[in-house]
Design a protein around this nucleic acid. Structure first.
Lengths: 222, 222
DNA sequence: ACCTGAACACCGTTCAAGT
DNA sequence: ACCTGAACACCGTTCAAGT
């Protein structure tokens, strides 16, 4: 009475279960129930849970490496890639934490990485630098998004006050007020700002021969 | 015949167990064995495993927020903070992943954050920007270190070749060779380079009134 | 006050046996 | 070939009872 179980169904079902239950509630047994199958049957498609998580992570990042508008300056192309990845990670509950827990980069992950590295290589970075910066930017995106998603499931009131006191700040310290301002700010805007800060550092490290119509300066340090 | 179990002993024992078994092998029951106690006894000190993990994470970051040499330019002070955090995370197996899995920042985490935010505030950033950049840099450190530690427990041979092919690159592509160069590189140096790239972006976003003896220029974008 | 012993409600994974 | 049913070796957590 049930359609034959295919690998792709398992991944889709697992992602839906992730949305419904969170990473902690994602269980082979619950997934079995959701797919109307015994838990053991899932092991025909994946050798273990980790392999399933790898596939889920890669599925999540599917569109990130799609072609970029070639009329964009290279730094803006990177920014777009970062924003795409951010959006993809946010598209499922605990998406960032799930991806960060996986080890073997899948096909879509590699495609997205290659896209970024290619942009940087065309901007004049030597290939190994291009990859290095690619990973560095992706780590930033991942780390920031993990924290965003952790924040969103924190107790609402969540007194920063107590924590500030633990750090030796009272409520009237300007630094303490800045933190409260930040906590009230839109996380998406914070992400974008951080990404731009990072990328302006990347721009500064670009080899002098990088041609960029929007940036006449070629200053860099070290 | 056993010393009275104190909260700090539990945290220390848990960190040692983490080193021995990894995050996946860190179990309340195994911790009980290591501390010569029934697993249930641990719940006199921590309401649940998550609270214990929070305490472990905070313990790991203990020294990071220590005072900084005040004769250092502010960007170098931030760099030192980033390197300290990196070192702390690497000091235990799966340290970065453990920290990234916790939600409530503890005392030492707050102290380290405050230190960074203070450096930035003194550099002229408005308080909320100071916190924003603090978190952004910390996310980069966390994300990069997670990946470093994931890499270190990967199968040795681990053919990048297959993955590159999945991304549509053959082995002779210069980009592919760059990735192999990178994989052979010292992860610590990669981290430091990424951190410096990020921080040069931060420097570029500093308000014009920032006084820094080592940097005469005050250029910035946007 | 602190800990034991034992239970409860789960896990991931395996594998003979069915269809 | 695909799946079931049932088991195995674990989990985190709770709680009466001991000392």
């Amino acid at each position: 009475m049930r359609m034959l179980l295919r690998r792709a169904n398992v991944v889709t079902g697992a992602l839906d279960l992730l949305d419904a239950e969170g990473l902690g509630g994602l269980t082979m047994r619950k997934l079995g129930v959701a797919l109307d199958v015994q838990a053991g049957a899932l092991y025909r498609h994946f050798p273990n849970k980790e392999a399933l998580l790898d596939a889920m992570a890669d599925q999540l990042l599917e569109g990130v490496g799609a072609p970029l508008p070639s009329d964009l300056p290279w730094a803006d192309q990177l920014e777009l890639l970062g924003e795409r990845m951010h959006t993809a990670l946010l598209s499922r509950r605990d998406g960032a934490r799930m991806v960060s827990g996986t080890f073997a980069p899948g096909r879509h992950t590699m495609i997205a990485s290659r896209r970024a590295a290619q942009v940087l290589a065309e901007a004049g970075f030597p290939p190994n630098r291009a990859w290095e910066i690619t990973f560095a930017v992706f780590y930033f995106v991942l780390g920031h998004t993990i924290e965003e998603q952790a924040q969103s499931r924190m107790p609402a009131g969540d007194d920063w006050t107590a924590r500030l006191e633990a750090a030796g700040l009272d409520t009237h310290d300007p630094l303490a007020m800045g933190l409260k301002t930040l906590a009230a700010a839109d996380p998406g805007r914070r992400f974008s700002y951080g990404l731009r800060v990072f990328l302006s550092g990347v721009r500064q490290h670009a080899p002098a021969d990088a041609a960029d119509p929007h940036e006449a300066e070629t200053t860099r340090d070290s």
